[in-house]
Simulated scan of single mutants.
Amino acid sequence: MTMFKPFALFFLILCTFLVVTQSRTIQPNDANLIQQTCKNTPNYALCIQYLNSDPKAPSADIRGLSLIMVNVIKTKATATLNKIRQLLKTSPPSQKGALTSCESKYNTIIVADVAEATEALQKGNPKFAEDGASDADVEQEACEGGFSGNSPLTADNNVMHNVATIARAIIRNLL
């Protein structure tokens, strides 16, 4: 029996050591992942703001952070699409054509680009996800260009540009 006590004590110490060294503190490591990821984007402060506004971000991996940013694209595009529809009701006839074109472009962002990026990330194909984020930026640029310098959507298009380029930069970490 005396031989058993030192073995039991050794086993207890070994188990405790393994639990302590193999466990992970979630918040500091994951906050560090968000910070490191955002450092590789064109706008660190906005990246941090968008990712930290999602409760899933602290426990997300790069793919999860990419999905969060694609969802931000969808949210911002939806808000802009709603604004465009309101503007179409009250805008002067000279802007109706450009607004209608923007409506189509922002609908494409939601229906095609976000769907493409989301599905590609879920299936593990980051190249197509990057294409979806890049296309969202192209769509906002075409929308802005349709107004020949007098766009009521400049601020919204700038937001879409920022969100799309941040999403694209995060997705590129998966390539």
Results as ranks from 00 to 15, higher is better:
residue 4 F to G: 06
residue 6 P to T: 01
residue 6 P to I: 02
residue 7 F to A: 10
residue 8 A to V: 08
residue 11 F to W: 10
residue 12 L to W: 05
residue 13 I to Q: 04
residue 13 I to F: 04
residue 18 L to D: 01
residue 18 L to W: 03
residue 19 V to E: 00
residue 21 T to S: 03
residue 22 Q to P: 03
residue 23 S to V: 03
residue 28 P to Y: 00
residue 28 P to H: 00
residue 32 N to K: 12
residue 34 I to F: 05
residue 36 Q to L: 10
residue 37 T to R: 04
residue 37 T to E: 02
residue 38 C to D: 00
residue 46 L to D: 13
residue 49 Q to V: 07
residue 50 Y to S: 08
residue 52 N to S: 12
residue 53 S to F: 01
residue 54 D to L: 08
residue 54 D to H: 11
residue 55 P to N: 13
residue 56 K to N: 14
residue 58 P to L: 03
residue 60 A to E: 11
residue 62 I to T: 15
residue 62 I to Y: 10
residue 63 R to V: 10
residue 64 G to H: 03
residue 67 L to P: 08
residue 69 M to I: 05
residue 72 V to M: 13
residue 73 I to A: 03
residue 76 K to I: 12
residue 81 L to S: 11
residue 81 L to C: 11
residue 81 L to A: 13
residue 82 N to Y: 13
residue 83 K to F: 12
residue 84 I to C: 04
residue 84 I to R: 03
residue 85 R to V: 12
residue 86 Q to I: 15
residue 92 P to Y: 15
residue 93 P to Y: 07
residue 93 P to T: 14
residue 97 G to W: 13
residue 99 L to S: 06
residue 103 E to Q: 13
residue 105 K to A: 12
residue 105 K to W: 10
residue 105 K to T: 09
residue 106 Y to C: 07
residue 108 T to W: 07
residue 108 T to D: 10
residue 109 I to A: 06
residue 110 I to A: 08
residue 110 I to V: 06
residue 110 I to K: 06
residue 112 A to N: 14
residue 114 V to R: 00
residue 121 L to A: 00
residue 123 K to D: 14
residue 123 K to I: 07
residue 124 G to S: 03
residue 124 G to C: 07
residue 127 K to T: 14
residue 128 F to W: 14
residue 128 F to L: 10
residue 132 G to D: 04
residue 133 A to C: 03
residue 135 D to M: 04
residue 136 A to F: 02
residue 136 A to G: 00
residue 140 Q to W: 10
residue 140 Q to F: 09
residue 141 E to K: 15
residue 142 A to L: 11
residue 145 G to K: 09
residue 149 G to K: 08
residue 149 G to Q: 07
residue 152 P to R: 10
residue 153 L to M: 08
residue 155 A to C: 12
residue 156 D to C: 09
residue 157 N to R: 07
residue 159 V to H: 09
residue 160 M to D: 03
residue 161 H to N: 11
residue 161 H to Q: 03
residue 163 V to E: 01
residue 168 R to D: 05
residue 172 R to M: 14
residue 173 N to V: 04
residue 174 L to D: 00
